[in-house]
Write a protein that binds this DNA or RNA. Structure first.
Length: 434
DNA sequence: TCAACGCGGCC
RNA sequence: GUUGGCCGCGUUGA
């Protein structure tokens, strides 16, 4: 199976214009089985309440029937189960669409095929949801653009409710650029049209791709590849006299311009462009700011104190100064993410306050290290140190709310931490280099 | 080298 | 009750 997909990928790479007319046959029993084994078992069940364990009881038979329905094109995905997960900001929460288990298998197979083809087409500026690419990579790339290019203006844009507003017609048009297999196209179209079940009521899904759908990430990337990335590369850059760059992570992106008027014109064109494809910029989460080597100087000349900042991938980017007094982009954990992480930690400690202290400390270790591994990047030392300090205080506070005989004084608590220390804050990732 | 499980992060 | 893709790390097995 791997070899067949590798072959498709190779063809896609060698012939960027190639249109694939025969792909659906790749979804055979073997591939469906493989996808089944790849899927995680301890996940919430879809509308039919079938879990992986249950599906497995008659695995071969189930897969063979599924394969038959795909071949005869009688396959119809079930509606996704609507669940709202709480979001720090709003009270309605984030809408998820949980697929039926069997539909996850099909979507995984489809996403593998799409990935094999489209990974070859995607531009270097696209970072989200892609194998071998990470947030840190996107941050480093953005840093290089600002430090080595001629960036003076930043357009920071946020697409509101991207997944919910992907247009099905345009989505299919995007896919048809490369994919000419009507069977595969129909399967994908049915996935998009599967509908939503929300407290007993069936709703049509006339736009959007389910947040929680296995294939949604790759579909999102394909959509924005054509709507945004290629447009920027081929049209926007050509129209600009100065430099223009984009770094995109899923639906979140930052654009860098040399000239103010080109940044402003782009922002205006961007809104029109996205509108055409049923997408909207969230104005309150988007902005154009002066940023870069000359920003600090110009801002001062105008009598303001500091250049504005922007957030990207959990970090607030600001104009800083290096040791030798030169301009440097710096980043620190954004206020929102910092507070969110601390809040979650507090909730966890609260919920586990009755477990023995030594075990509690053991359980916090991997949490802290995981946190440092993301936020421990160049120039963010103070913020992760602050996090470590706040967590320590939180621990002391909640340990002390137990019964009297188990309580600690602050001194005794520090002594305990000497014997069983929490992992120290550490910079794991350098934004500079390569 | 490969599984299984867990933790952290982004959108 | 809580999904998905990706990234990173850890533990345990063989």
């Amino acid at each position: 199976m791997e070899t067949k997909l590798a072959r498709i990928a190779q063809v896609a790479k060698e012939r960027p214009k190639e249109q694939f007319t025969s792909l659906a046959h790749l979804i055979n029993v073997e591939m469906l089985l493989e996808c089944h084994y790849e899927l995680s078992g301890n996940k919430a069940a879809g509308i039919d309440r079938v879990t992986k364990a249950e599906y497995e009881k008659n695995l071969l038979e189930n897969i063979i029937v599924l394969h038959g329905s795909l071949r005869k094109m009688t396959y119809r995905p079930q509606a996704v189960r609507r669940v709202y997960i709480p979001k720090p900001g709003s009270d309605k929460g984030r809408p998820l669409g949980i697929l039926a288990y069997e539909d996850k298998i099909v979507q995984l197979a489809v996403s593998k095929i799409l990935t094999a083809i489209y990974e070859q087409d995607f531009l270097d500026s696209s970072y989200g949801f892609r194998p071998g690419r990470s947030c840190h990579g996107a941050l480093r790339k953005l840093n290089n653009i600002i430090m080595t290019g001629k960036t003076n203006w930043i357009v920071d844009a946020d697409v509101s409710g991207f997944f919910d507003h992907v247009d099905h017609g345009w989505m299919m048009k995007c896919l048809e650029v490369r994919i000419k297999d009507p069977k595969l196209l129909r399967i994908i179209k049915r996935m998009l049209k599967a509908g939503i079940m929300e407290d007993g009521e069936y709703k049509l899904s006339e736009e959007g791709t389910p947040q929680g759908g296995v294939a949604s990430p790759i579909l999102a990337n394909i959509y924005l590849h054509y709507i945004l990335d290629l447009w920027f590369e081929r049209i926007v850059k050509k129209q600009c006299k100065g430099s223009a760059h984009i770094v995109r992570y899923a639906d979140d992106f930052v654009c860098c311009f040399q000239y103010e008027h080109e940044a402003k014109r782009f922002y205006y064109e961007l809104i029109k462009r996205l509108e055409k494809f049923n997408l909207n910029i969230a104005p309150e989460k988007s902005k154009i700011i002066e940023f870069g080597l000359f920003a600090a100087r110009n801002v001062k000349k105008r009598g303001e104190n500091k250049p504005e900042t922007f957030d990207f991938l959990g970090f607030t980017h600001y104009c800083g100064v290096s040791q030798n007094g030169k301009f440097r982009v710096k980043r620190k954990t954004s206020r929102k993410k910092y507070q969110g992480a601390l809040y979650r930690m507090k909730q966890w400690i609260k919920a586990n306050r009755t477990t023995p202290v030594s075990i509690l400390l053991e359980q916090i270790k991997p949490k802290l290290v995981g946190y440092y591994r993301y936020y421990g990047i160049t120039d963010n030392g103070p913020m992760i140190h602050r996090y470590w300090y706040e967590v320590t205080k939180l621990l002391f506070k909640w340990i002390n709310r137990r019964s009297q005989r188990n309580s600690y004084t602050w001194e005794k608590f520090l002594l305990l931490l000497k014997v069983k220390p929490l992992p120290k804050p550490k910079i794991y990732f350098s934004i500079l280099s390569a």
